[in-house]
Design a protein around this nucleic acid. Sequence first.
DNA 1: AAAGTAGCCTGGAAGC
DNA 2: TGCTTCCAGGCTACTT
Length: 276
Amino acid sequence: MPELPEVQSVVTGLNKILPNKTIKSVEVFWQKTIATPAVETFQKKLTGLKIKEVARRAKFIVMTFESGEILLTHLRMSGQFSWHQELPSENAKHLRVRFLFTDNSVLDFMDTRKFARMYLFQNLKEAEEKALYKLGAEPLEIKALEFREIFRAKKGNIKGNLLRQDLVSGVGNIYADESLFLAKIHPTSLTHKIPKAKFTELHQVLQGILRKAIKRNGTTVNTFLNINGEAGGFRDELQVYKQEKAACPNCGNLIQKIRLGSRGTHFCATCQKKYL
DNA sequence: AAAGTAGCCTGGAAGC
DNA sequence: TGCTTCCAGGCTACTT
């Protein structure tokens, strides 16, 4: 499941290849992948545009064109880009969108689960107003004090709040579970009952884990591959996520798995303190 | 207002 | 063995 580090890995790869390429045509194999505008408009508007750069905002891939248009892509569960020097002899499985460039290279977008979405906007202002405005601060940019203030008075459990993109953006299920384990906070802890110092700690371990995961090219749990077809190496570093029934690396007791807010949630009941 | 949940989807795992 | 059911989860929309 692509979260911030996985998206960053994809963006870094795309930004090495795509700038200065001009789109010759766009093929759409699954209409719903294009969230906005209408598919024909999407194809028509993109044709002839030259890519300026590829960046990331939260879990969105932000492609900027020379003329100012913005293409946002959200990978959701299984979205995947793959670039080819020339047209592949046969279509990849789950191919949803294909971008053909004037230099005859090809950018394919595959998405098994069909949850991924692309949004084309006229300019950054429109992208901000219609899509990005809901996003909270970047977890790697936010300061500890600010981080604590955002969460301090929030109701509900900390796990659910960590996943909220409008508070701090880019954290998903894997890094939520992992950072709570490292900060020794039980996922069902009530957010407003967690002491100030613990938030400082959570902020620190979250930044640490995200930086480390970016270095390791993200985490591959089921299907994630970057544009070079490489899996993420952070999987080997998971302490609790998908480790149910394994021994806690700290105390040796079994890692537990529960459902919290309809999400699989992994933790060590011994090491992680419950603030209620 | 905040919290819970259905729905979007497929494929692999688990259950029978 | 082969069928059916369950589960994974980011995000939106809807209900309570």
